[in-house]
Design a protein around this nucleic acid. Sequence first.
RNA 1: GGAUGGGUGGCCGAGUGGUUGAAGGCACCGGUCUUGAAAACCGGCAGGGGUUUACGCCCCUCGUGAGUUCGAAUCUCACCCCAUCCGCCA
Length: 429
Amino acid sequence: MHDIKSIRENPQDFDNGLKRRGLAALSSEILKLDQDWRQTTTRLQEMQSARNDASKRIGQAKAQKNDAEALRLMGEVTRLKDEMPAAEQRAKELEQTINERLGEIPNLPAADVPDGPDESANKEVRRTGQPRSMNFAAKQHFELGEALKLMDFEAATRMSGARFVLLKAQLARLERAIGNFMLDLHTGTFGYQETSPPLLVRDQAMFGTAQLPKFRDEQFGTTNGYWLIPTAEVSLTNQVRETILSEADMPLRFTAWTPCFRSEAGAAGKDTRGMIRMHQFSKVELVSITTPEQSQAEHERMTSCAEEVLKRLDLPYRTVVLCTGDMGFAARKTYDIEVWLPGQNAYREISSCSNCGDFQARRMEARYRPTGDSKGTRFVHTLNGSGLAVGRTLVAILENYQQADGSIAIPPALRPYMGGAEAIAAHGA
RNA sequence: GGAUGGGUGGCCGAGUGGUUGAAGGCACCGGUCUUGAAAACCGGCAGGGGUUUACGCCCCUCGUGAGUUCGAAUCUCACCCCAUCCGCCA
């Protein structure tokens, strides 16, 4: 949500930001509504003030038994009140319209975000690790998983339809190992607080992190008004909704390993094979709540925390900064981390780390009180990142650690979580 | 699902029609005292918005929205949320 005051003060900056995102200018339309609202409000407040004043004097007149004066004042108030309802209604309508419009406008890109229309304009900022050379043709993860008889798309489809998968035995355990490994790293080494949050949330929470109102179609909802979280970002970030924190509390760092649910509306035909794009997947999420001064450094830190997972798993990856046209709705700047998938011969997104600035905080009313200042509050900054997508990490391990015979080596960092096993043996071996 | 109780400032908690935006406590900020800290004491301290060059002035907010009234945190209605007990249940 944008600050109407900053639009008033810098309409040109606002429109420029939208333009960088490929959107039309909106400031003049918004400001026209705003001006109308302010005029209406000022007029209404004058009437309210006059009414309050007269009411007070009625009380005084009655106390002094001056019934004539009281009666006269009552008449005055009655006359005043004739005009008030219309102004009240008008002000309310305008306010609602403005809020609806503002709620559907995405965050503005940070100054150092490269301009561009789509992912082709994203900029690689670093490349880490070398794709392993294989003396055989690399297979894709679903070929490997199905050959192992441990990845069952058919059974999943029979009960749930497309975009679901059922993992078995060593692969099911591998998923658990990955999740545990990531949580241990982020809590133990990086100081994130492990959290086990609700997976069903209300409208307000989804509005807070900006899945609503614009992306309703991409969510799963229950028949009685709950939403299934599309990412733990929703639950973790909304922890601070409608609160006023102390500056000393920050930064707050939370992590959670949860299932995520996405309808994948609009993704028809994309990534239909395999488990790259599922209706349900698990992810370890990182969320930080910071002061405005801290958020930029925290963004770099968070990205490096996510990267560390890939380093420890010895998976090659590259980090890109998304261009203005490819960023998500709430982000002011985003790094994507893309892991190398030899079976696809491509880098594929495995993490997305975003600094949302105060955009979500405004929607959630998440504020803090600066130290040494007992008066006044400021909005916090919120950041979120995958640390990492667990399903896609499993995909990456399968493809990068595949052996000629179809078995999968287990990365050393995960072996303690796999009962010491060094490989997932080929079926029938 | 049934029954009851309840939603007040950062937190706890008074307050049932009239200068109450709200006692008291805690927290926080400033000060006195102290070698320093703590304690004690003194003072300050809700949020949002409009308007103003500024000082300031004004409006709104006691879950939300309607209503009664000259006037509502206080009365009425609807809704939302929370708690407890019962039922069901992992």
